[in-house]
Design a protein around this nucleic acid. Structure first.
Lengths: 236, 236
DNA sequence: TCCATTCTCCTACACTGTTTGATTAGTCCT
DNA sequence: AGGACTAATCAAACAGTGTAGGAGAATGGA
């Protein structure tokens, strides 16, 4: 890795999508779309650390350095791939219903899309979300919240809470799922049981099977939406 | 003579803390504590990608491969450093008060500790939390929730929601904070404004300054706790 | 003393992201 | 038609990465 590279900093004046797209007359072998699609495929198969410029270039029948014409660096690649996942979420209908239902539908839809790509949760936690699809999400969520009566700081806070909860949950679920369940987790629960003095509550109330992530997610989602409902309209 | 200690190499099944600690008679130059402390220091200074085995070894006055006696790989290092950050959170008092207040205090305390180390949020999202300090947290949170009347699935879900919300928020805040505010973010808001047709709500309700993360966090926290309060005791 | 064990060091490998400059291939202007 | 221009790809090289395998030194017990 090159020395002194600022951590995760886009090299241009902004994110990938805000930079002018390089295109000319010649029909190119590469395009941002093809690159993004291939990156997603590799990420799905080999995970975040399995995506290298050379491997990606190979998959595209091209040499590694050619990618740098379309993309500033590896981080750009990750941004593009992540926003592509956001693009998988079905757009909320323009004909909106009860705002609580819309929010809930959005949250479960986003969760499912992110879970389809196990690398996406950690990435969404680690990088700011400013791709076009992510902005579409923000737009529709805020629209629903405005309908609910939110405004000002409470509006921003509510939108952030929704997004953060979903992404945090998915990241946690994916990170646990990446680990071997039969060994690591068993070792952990055994440890908790044998240290019941230190963890009395954990030992007395063993967590319901972690495999039931969806139930937990929906539970927490209901907690959050209930809280939002209680303070809708009373904001400033 | 080939050493037959291959079976007790630190790359056993499970997380670092569950593996037997290698220690002998000789007073070692290295220890997990020293390694962890140095790792945290480097992470604080140079971020996650700035922590390399060689740099860490240098900081400890030792050669890179020596680290592998105490630690299986780089991921172990990150796990240790992350749990050290969790250890910075002041333990909730044993003499508990209103459970809502205890939960709120825990959440803000955890947030502050994680924010002190900008790399921690992304890491906590990406890796399962099973270090001793993380377990201490889980224990005290669940204890408060049990007092509140939660049990079974709702208990697990509530604990997960709390943790996921805090970690998700901190990760988002840290990821935005890592980026240059005066260029990238301005480019983004300009983009939203110029595309007001596509983002009518975002353009009409521009987010309150992102710099006010704490207010947003506390807002969302109140949403969540309100929701928890509403369904406390009504669980199965 | 000898041995066994714990720990540190040395060498080496395959691989990484990225920079610099050369080389192609197509379009536009004359 | 022939240059000029430029977009796009390629080639070579650099500095650095995580980590495996084994050699060597330091210590304690027998």
């Amino acid at each position: 890795m090159s020395p002194k590279r600022a951590e995760q900093s886009p090299s241009g004046p902004g994110a990938v999508w805000l930079r002018e797209r390089r295109q000319g007359t010649r029909t190119p072998a590469l395009s941002i779309e093809r690159i993004t699609a291939a990156a997603v495929r590799i990420l799905d198969e080999d995970g975040q650390s399995g995506l290298s410029m050379r491997k990606l270039a190979d998959a595209l029948g091209v040499h590694a350095t050619s990618l740098y014409w379309h993309v500033a660096n590896r981080d750009d690649l990750l941004d593009l791939a992540l926003d592509a996942v956001f693009g998988e979420v079905e757009a909320p209908r323009k004909d909106p219903g009860l705002w609580q239902a819309d929010i809930a539908a959005y949250m479960t839809g986003l969760r499912e899309a992110l879970l389809r790509h196990p690398w996406a949760g950690a990435l969404a936690s680690a990088r700011p979300l400013m791709g076009p699809h992510a902005l579409d999400h923000a737009e529709s969520v805020q629209a629903a919240l405005v309908r609910a009566g939110f405004s000002g700081t409470a509006l921003t806070a509510a939108a952030a809470a929704i997004s953060n909860y979903v992404i945090g949950s998915v990241a946690a679920e994916a990170s646990w799922g990446r680990h071997d369940q039969s060994t690591a987790r068993r070792a952990l629960t055994d440890h908790v049981q044998s240290a019941a003095l230190r963890y009395p509550t954990l030992a007395a109330h063993p967590p319901t099977p972690y495999s039931d992530w969806q139930t937990h997610f929906e539970h927490g989602m209901r907690f959050l939406i209930a809280g939002l409902t209680a303070s809708a309209g009373t904001s400033g």
